[in-house]
Design a binder for these strands. Structure first.
Length: 152
DNA sequence: GCCAACGTTGGC
DNA sequence: GCCAACGTTGGC
């Protein structure tokens, strides 16, 4: 992350977006239960520059909503960043990065995509505005809204 | 540097 | 299984 634009009055994403994120995973490939089983995982394979930018902005301790795509289509749990961005070993070009995540807790009940879409308060959520984005920031307000919808 | 073709993601 | 959205690639 070194070498980004200089200038103290240059607002960068990591200054603006606090510490909440959402990641997608197909549970058939890697579910939240798999994360619990493994205890920790390398979140690699992201090949989209917008998503990679979000990975780079993550800090250790940031909380992450864990969303199941394809099957379930719901936010099921909270995970946390255990290691900040480092080069993704699975990327031959060396341009993309990975982070490491650890499990935190399952939500009392999952929050479905349909429920999120139906809630006007979440209309500006990055993941709703750009459906294919696999890593996205979540505002503090949206974070609180989703946890409440989940019964916390 | 533009743009058409193509591939991938992910909801429906 | 289909299709929309969107990113990437490659020809020019």
């Amino acid at each position: 992350m070194a070498g980004t634009k200089a200038g103290h009055d240059d607002l960068r994403e990591e200054d603006l977006v606090a510490s909440h994120w959402l990641v997608k995973s197909e549970p058939a490939t890697f579910s939240y239960d798999d994360l619990v089983r493994d205890g920790r995982t390398v979140w690699d394979g992201v090949r989209n520059h917008a998503a990679a930018g979000h990975l780079k902005a993550m800090k250790v301790g940031d909380q992450v909503l864990f969303y199941h795509s394809q099957e379930g289509k719901d936010v099921v749990a909270v995970a946390q960043v255990a290691r900040e961005a480092f080069p993704d070993a699975s990327d031959p070009t060396g341009k993309f990065v990975a982070v490491e995540l650890t499990p935190v807790r399952k939500l009392p009940r999952s929050v479905t995509l349909a429920q999120m879409k139906a809630n006007p308060a979440l209309a500006d959520m990055a993941m709703l505005r750009q459906g294919r984005l696999s890593v996205s920031p979540v505002s503090d307000a949206d974070w609180a809204t989703i946890l409440k919808m989940a019964g916390e």
